[in-house]
Design a protein around this nucleic acid. Structure first.
Lengths: 234, 234
DNA sequence: TGCATACATAAAGTATACAAAAATTTTCAG
DNA sequence: CTGAAAATTTTTGTATACTTTATGTATGCA
C-alpha cells in the first residue's frame, strides 16, 4: 500500500476533482479514501476539511463530503462572474508581479504548450489551471484570489473537452489559446494593465464559446433511425 | 465545564476574532481551546481547519494556528478591493434577493440599530457584520461571496472603534450609518441596482474615513510635556 | 397491502493514547 | 560568562477504539 503524505493526498484529490476523475456531486467515502492514500481517517478528514475550505468539496453534518456540484445555478453564476474577476486579477498582476512569479508563469506556459502539442488533454487542462492560478498569485490580493481559485475549479472542470479537439478547427482554437497565453505573459511582464485586461477578455471569450458548447451541445438529430431498423443493425 | 457543540465553538471563535478579543496574529493553542470549549482536540482541530478555510485563521505545518494577521499588505489590499466587491454584491443582491432573505436583513438591521442606540459597541460591530453578510447571501454568488466574507472579517476588525464614538460628531456618523442601512434595504427590496450601488459606495466612504483614521491616528503632539514635569504629575 | 415502528447496519463524530516535531531549558566546554 | 550541543518539555500530528447519528430493512398491526 502506497503511503501518501497529507500534502500529496491533498494535491492528488485536487487533481482528481479538477480532471473530473471524481465527478461533481460524487460522494466521498472517508474509509475508502483513507485506505487508498494509506493514512488513517483523522488526517484524511483534515484533507477533506481543507478541500471544503478551498471550494472543491462540500460537507454536511453526519452526511460526509461530496465533490462540489456544478448545477445550473453554479454555471449561471460562473459565466456571470468570471470575466470581471479575471480582468481585475490581470490588472493587479501587472501592478504587483515579481520576477520569480514571472518565471513560474513561463514554466507553467511551457508545460501547457508541451501538453497541448503532445496530445495530453488532462495534463493540458491542469497546466492551464496552474497558469491562471499563478497569475492569481501575482495579483497579490487574498480577497480576489479566493474568488478566482473557486472560479478556476469550475473553469477547469468545464473545459475538459477543450483539450480534446475533435476537428482541425478545434485544434486551431487550442493553438490560439497557447498564443494568447504568450501574449498575456508579455503584457504582464511589461506591466501593461490595459492590454492585459484586453487579452484576458479575448481569452475568456474563446474559452466561453467552447464551454457553452459543452454545456449546451448540438441537439440529437430529430429524424432518428426507426427503432426496428436499429434492432436489425445491431 | 461548559460543553460547546462544534457549531457553537465555531461561532464563538468567529465572534472572538471579529471583536479582536483574539487579536490578529494571536497564537491559538489547541489544548487550551479544547479545554475551554469542553471538547477533545480532534473536533477542535476541525473547527480550526474550518476557520482557516473561511480566512479567519492561518495554519502552518507543525506550527499550529494563528489568527489571520492584518499587516500593511493586507490593509492596502483591503482598501483597494472592498468597494469593487461591495458594489457588485449590492447589484447582485438587488437581482437575486428572496423575501426570506429580506426579512433576515431587516432583523439584522433591527439588532444593529438596538446595539448602536444601546451603546453596545461589540454587538453593533457584529450586527453590522451580519447585515452585510446577509446582503452577501442575497447576491447568490459563491465566488464573490468568498471574497466578500474575507473582506468583512477585516472590515469588522478594523471598525472596532467606529461604534465607540468619542464625540458628538462621531455619534452622528454612527446614526448616519444606520440611516444608510435603511436606505440600502429599501433599494434592495425595490430591486434598484444603480441606487443600491450608489448607497453602498456612500456607506463605504463613511466607513473608510473612520477606518483610515483608526489606522493612521493623529500624531502625538510634538511639544510634549518635559519628562520631569510628567513625573511630578503622576 | 399500506404504513409505522423497531431493529440492524453502516458511516460520521469524538476521545484518547501514542509518535513525531518544535521549542525550551540545561549542561558543559571553551 | 558565552555559546553550542544535549536533554527535557511542550505542542502538533496520527492511529485506533468507541459513541452517536442516519439510513435501510424487517416485522407487525391496521
Amino acid at each position: 500500500m502506497t503511503r501518501f503524505s497529507k500534502d500529496d493526498c491533498l494535491a492528488d484529490m485536487r487533481r482528481r476533482i479538477l480532471s473530473t476523475d471524481l465527478q461533481p456531486g460524487h460522494d466521498l467515502d472517508e474509509v475508502g479514501l483513507a485506505e487508498r492514500y494509506g493514512m488513517s481517517r483523522t488526517p484524511l478528514r483534515e484533507v477533506l476539511q481543507r478541500l471544503q475550505g478551498e471550494g472543491y468539496v462540500v460537507m454536511s453534518q453526519n452526511r460526509g463530503a461530496k465533490v462540489a456540484s456544478m448545477d445550473i445555478a453554479v454555471l449561471r453564476t460562473f459565466f456571470q462572474t468570471a470575466p470581471m474577476v479575471y480582468a481585475n486579477i490581470a490588472r493587479l498582476a501587472c501592478e504587483n508581479r515579481t520576477s520569480a512569479q514571472l518565471d513560474a508563469l513561463k514554466i507553467a506556459q511551457v508545460d501547457f504548450t508541451k501538453a497541448t502539442k503532445g496530445g495530453k488533454p488532462d495534463d493540458a487542462a491542469l497546466a492551464n489551471h496552474k497558469f491562471h492560478a499563478t497569475i492569481g498569485h501575482m495579483a497579490h490580493n487574498a480577497y480576489l484570489v479566493a474568488a478566482l481559485d473557486r472560479l478556476l475549479i469550475d473553469h477547469t472542470r468545464l473545459s475538459q473537452t477543450f483539450y480534446r479537439p475533435a476537428s482541425p478547427s478545434e485544434t486551431m482554437l487550442v493553438l490560439k489559446a497557447v498564443e494568447q497565453h504568450d501574449a498575456m505573459i508579455a503584457a504582464i511582464e511589461a506591466g501593461e494593465g490595459a492590454l492585459a485586461i484586453d487579452l484576458t477578455i479575448q481569452h475568456w471569450d474563446l474559452s466561453r464559446d467552447r464551454m457553452e458548447r459543452f454545456v449546451r451541445p448540438n441537439p440529437l438529430p430529430v429524424d432518428v433511425i426507426p427503432l426496428k431498423d436499429r434492432e436489425n443493425a445491431i
